[in-house]
Write a protein that binds this DNA or RNA. Structure first.
Lengths: 342, 342
DNA sequence: TTTTGGTGTGCACACGTGTGCGCGTTCGGA
DNA sequence: TCCGAACGCGCACACGTGTGCACACCAAAA
């Protein structure tokens, strides 16, 4: 940290006390216009940059928001962070970023460091924390928002912002049924048990409500230790239920893998089989064929989290927020061809 | 900022001065073992969390690195930030993130705010700053690293980390010539004039060195006000030089657009025309066909920047770093078919 | 017993900023 | 001319931490 000019330096040059300089620069009343003018000019001329650290110490607030994220390189979370940052900068706050892979220990360490830095609040994206850690955090009193967490909270300082996974599954089912599909599959992921269950339930319940018999709904799940895209590839390869004409995948990663798997197998998408993903990753637009998917409002997720966090910091209580996903129709889903009806 | 226990609180409870508490917790010598034990236990029991803000003020260093980035949602920059964060956390530092779209004013504002926060150094990703702003920053004395900036610096506190764009263009040329292509095109972008020029020069110079006549090298450039992907689409559509069998694109965005444009036009990639991109975006793997590209070492870019910044902060001077890109062969480029030779 | 040296602890200050309170000055009205 | 009010400014403290110096104490050596 380079030594910089302080208000004391300005005070000395102006022949006044540092109190006067502080008041003049902050636009305090009851400072004579001449003195204020001289101080402002002097500050500019001397290249004064206010010390936010000292201000934070004095004001007992840092105007800083901590963000803990599993993988900043993931384009999905990147969009979420962008939403957070947008609201932050318009609030005059800054974002302290801490990456912490999918690991409880690392996430706790990151949160501790942020608390040392006295952030005004914390947003945890894609939390992997267990109940005991949560209780520990409740005790600390720092306002926190969890985005797409798998659990809910009782403490007044902890809130969540999530996507309605059940509704997302239902939307996918509506779409496929409307296209005429009557025998379908769900490609799941064991890595996120909570959201996986909700998406599959919403999907299956809605299919059943539309009159699709349970025996015509197949489920598969990839291994927990491989990348989504590889899991999707494998499940597409090994799918050999005759007559299945559509697949709904837990997320776009699995769906993109499935596209590749079907292509390798010689099964044309969407003419022989329709594929629907979840998330709307940036790359979903550029796959071949472009992927029909249940889009998560990623930017909105971050913005809502930040808004609610600001409210929490302000001392007002807020409710958990649930956002609804929307159907984004591209080219990987199509009406059931006549010949494929079984 | 919630009121938290300070070393003074601990001191009071332990019946010693805050000095002793500070020394005990920092592992200072010349503190009796009994007193230290009691203080450490008390600190733990009272839930003491050291105040990094006060420490920063006292130590005159914040252990914080500022990162200014044009678009955090861009997966390319996300990987770079990940590289920065990796080194930061292992150095015990934190990352203060500030987004600032492609706009000089916003970037300067972001830098000012980081300087107010007294960050130890700043990394500016994809800078759009002009010479006069640069001079202003030199004067401030804050150590800074510019990643993939379009210019170089004289000040000892300002350094750059860039990719060797000329070499990247040359590698693309080598690859296409090796595949037998003799009539090619370059799809450029006017948004980043510096790197665009270097990539095209490296490409063209090397083609000429391989014996390709200049009259067989076509260049096009998209409009500055549209997205890369749309620019690529348009350029592919409007390409009507007969006999061109390969295209090298300024970046993957343009290349992905070109893939779509050629497909819409009924020109098969790679059988009728090979396409090579630049960057290796995450989605380049999942396009159809998967994109051959000149890969930038994105994580390394961030890590190198952070390493050099740490050196700069330590007071030692460093040189500008130039990293070399590498060829990543996928399916969008293929040997020239016999029938297409002109 | 006095001197010397080491050990454990506290005082007081520094870092840079903001603010409650009080003091001196000026001004306007009676 | 006198008095109250408003104005302009500084003193002193607070925020939480770290550290140079001094001081008190104790033990061992002279």
């Amino acid at each position: 940290m380079v030594r910089r000019v302080s208000i004391m330096d300005i005070a000395e040059r102006a022949g006044v006390s540092h109190t006067t300089v502080s008041r003049a620069l902050r636009g305090h009343t009851r400072i004579s216009a001449v003195v204020r003018g001289r101080i402002v000019e002097l500050a500019d001329q001397m290249g004064y940059v206010p010390n936010a650290i000292a201000q934070s110490l004095q004001q007992q607030q840092s105007c800083t928001i901590g963000v803990v994220i599993s993988d900043i390189a993931d384009p999905f979370w990147g969009e979420v962070v962008k939403g957070i940052d947008d609201v932050c900068t318009s609030n005059g706050q800054s974002v302290l970023l801490h990456a912490a892979a999918h690991d409880e220990k690392l996430q706790i360490t990151a949160i501790r460091r942020l608390q040392q830095r006295r952030v005004d609040g914390i947003i945890v994206v894609d939390s992997q924390l267990g109940p005991s850690e949560i209780r520990q955090l409740e005790a600390s009193g720092t306002p926190m928002i969890f985005i797409n967490s798998q659990r809910s909270f009782e403490s007044s300082s902890l809130r969540s912002v999530t996507i309605d996974n059940y509704a997302g599954g239902a939307i996918a089912a509506d779409h496929l049924v409307a296209l005429g599909h009557q025998k379908v599959a769900y490609f799941g992921s064991p890595k996120r048990p909570g959201s996986n269950l909700k998406r599959s339930l919403g999907f299956i319940d809605t299919l059943v409500a539309h009159g699709v018999h349970r025996s015509r709904i197949f489920q598969d799940e990839c291994a927990a230790d491989i990348a989504d895209i590889d899991g999707g590839y494998t499940m597409a390869q090994s799918l050999n239920e005759p007559g299945v004409t559509a697949v709904f995948c837990y997320n776009d990663g699995i769906a993109l893998g499935a596209l590749a798997g079907f292509r390798a197998k010689g099964v044309a998408v969407p003419h022989k089989i329709s594929v629907v993903g979840f998330d709307d990753l940036a790359m979903a637009r550029y796959s071949w064929p472009p992927l029909t998917t249940i889009a998560q409002p990623k930017g909105l997720l971050g913005q809502t989290a930040m808004h609610n966090l600001a409210t929490l910091i302000g001392g007002t209580s807020v409710a958990d927020a649930v956002l609804v996903p929307s159907l984004l129709i591209r080219d990987s889903s199509t009406p059931l061809a006549k010949g494929l009806r079984s």
